[in-house]
C-alpha cells in the first residue's frame, strides 16, 4: 500500500523508517477481524489477511493470484465489473451490502467497502477491499422483523376479537348508536397500530394520523378538510394516544360541528415551537356552537388522558363559530429523524 496516512508516520518519534511503517500497517491489517484484501485492476487477489481467511475459509496461498470472483456467487457476478469500473474512476464504494461465498459454499451477508489504491505517482493501480461478515446481524434483523410482525398481528387480532365480543354481546336492538361509536374507536386504534407496524414501530407521521381520521369525511369538491404542517414523527406511545383524541374531534365535528353541515370546514395545522409541536384543530362555517353540557369520553380523553399520558397541554374553546382545540405535543413524544 502506497502513501501511509500521516497520522501513522507521526506515531514514530523523529524520522519515520518506511520499513517500520510498513510493518506497523501490516500488523494492523493482520489483526483485523474484517477481511482486508487487495486486488489489482483486473480483479486478481494480491493480499489476503487472517480476517479474510476466517471469513471466507481460504488460506492466503489458496487465494492470492486467484480472481476475486471466486468469492462471488454466480448470480452476482455482474457486480465485479461495475465495482472495478467505479474503482478505475477513483470512486470509493462504502458499506455496500451484498452476498459472498465461503469456500464451503455457504452464502455470507457481507458489508463491503472498496477503495482505490494509488501508486507513488498517484495512479490507481488496484483496490483495497474491506469485507465485514454481517450474516449474524442480518439474521438478528430478520428475527426482529419476524417478532414485530407477530406482535403487530397479535395486537390486531386481539382488537378484532374485542369487536367480535362486542358483536356477540349485544343484540341489534340494544343501543346500536353507542355500539357504532365504540366500534369506530376500536377501529381507529387498530388503524393506528397498523400505521405503527408499517413503520416498524419507529413512529408515525402526524399528517398520516390526521389524514386517516379525517378520510371518512373528506369531500374533495368542498374541501371541507384542510391539513397542513411540517413533517413531524410521533413516538408510538404518542401516536396511539393522539389517534384516539383526533378520532373524538373528528366524530364530534361530524355529529355536532363543522363536518355536520355542507359549508363547514375543519382546518388542522401544526407548527414546531421551542416546547414541542403545537397542533390546532379549527372548525368553521358549521352550525353555531355552544359548550356541551356533558363531559363525555371525548373530553375525558382530550382534557385528561392526553395530559397524563403525554404531558400535553390541551385547550378547548367552544366558540359560537366553531370549536378550536389546541394540543401541545411535548418534544419527548417526537421522534427525531436524521434521514
Amino acid at each position: 500500500m502506497a502513501r501511509p496516512p500521516s497520522n501513522v508516520t507521526q506515531f514514530e518519534r523523529g524520522r519515520p523508517n518506511p520499513d517500520d511503517v510498513a510493518q506497523w500497517l501490516a500488523a494492523i491489517v493482520e489483526s483485523s477481524d474484517d477481511a482486508i484484501i487487495s486486488k489489482d485492476l483486473d480483479g486478481t487477489i494480491l493480499s489476503w489477511n487472517t480476517g479474510a481467511q476466517r471469513i471466507f475459509g481460504y488460506q492466503a496461498d489458496e487465494a492470492i493470484g486467484k480472481p476475486v470472483t471466486m468469492l462471488i456467487p454466480s448470480d452476482r457476478l455482474d457486480e465485479e465489473p461495475s465495482i472495478l469500473s467505479r474503482i478505475r474512476a477513483g470512486e470509493r464504494i462504502d458499506h455496500y451490502e451484498t452476498v459472498r461465498r465461503h469456500k464451503d459454499g455457504t452464502l455470507l451477508d457481507i458489508s463491503l467497502t472498496v477503495s482505490p489504491v494509488r501508486n507513488i505517482q498517484g495512479e490507481i493501480v488496484g483496490a483495497s477491499k474491506i469485507a465485514r461478515n454481517v450474516t449474524q446481524r442480518k439474521k438478528m434483523e430478520k428475527h426482529r422483523e419476524l417478532l414485530m410482525a407477530e406482535l403487530s398481528h397479535r395486537v390486531k387480532n386481539t382488537l378484532a376479537i374485542v369487536l367480535s365480543i362486542e358483536r356477540l354481546s349485544f343484540s341489534k336492538q340494544q343501543d346500536t348508536e353507542a355500539s357504532g361509536v365504540f366500534r369506530a374507536r376500536i377501529h381507529s386504534l387498530a388503524q393506528a397500530h397498523g400505521r405503527l407496524a408499517e413503520a416498524q414501530w419507529t413512529g408515525v407521521a402526524l399528517e398520516r394520523l390526521v389524514e386517516d381520521e379525517l378520510a371518512p369525511y373528506r369531500q374533495s369538491e368542498t374541501s371541507n378538510t384542510r391539513i397542513s404542517g411540517p413533517p413531524v414523527i410521533l413516538s408510538a406511545h404518542c401516536a396511539l394516544n393522539m389517534v384516539l383524541a383526533i378520532h373524538e374531534l373528528a366524530t364530534n365535528a361530524a355529529k355536532h360541528g363543522a363536518l355536520s353541515s355542507p359549508r363547514g370546514q375543519v382546518v388542522v395545522t401544526w407548527e414546531r415551537k421551542d416546547d414541542g409541536v403545537l397542533l390546532e384543530w379549527r372548525e368553521q362555517g358549521g352550525p353555531a356552537v355552544s359548550p356541551p353540557q356533558r363531559r363525555g369520553f371525548g373530553r375525558l380523553l382530550l382534557e385528561q388522558a392526553l395530559h397524563q399520558e403525554l404531558g400535553s397541554n390541551v385547550s378547548m374553546n367552544f366558540r359560537p363559530e366553531g370549536l378550536i382545540c389546541t394540543i401541545l405535543i411535548p418534544p419527548q413524544e417526537l421522534e427525531v429523524r436524521f434521514d
Binding site: A149, S152, H153, V155, A160, A197, E198
Partner: peptide, 8 residues
Amino acid sequence: LSGYEARN
C-alpha cells in the same frame, strides 16, 4: 383477512 402487513 389478516393482521399481517404487506411486507410480511
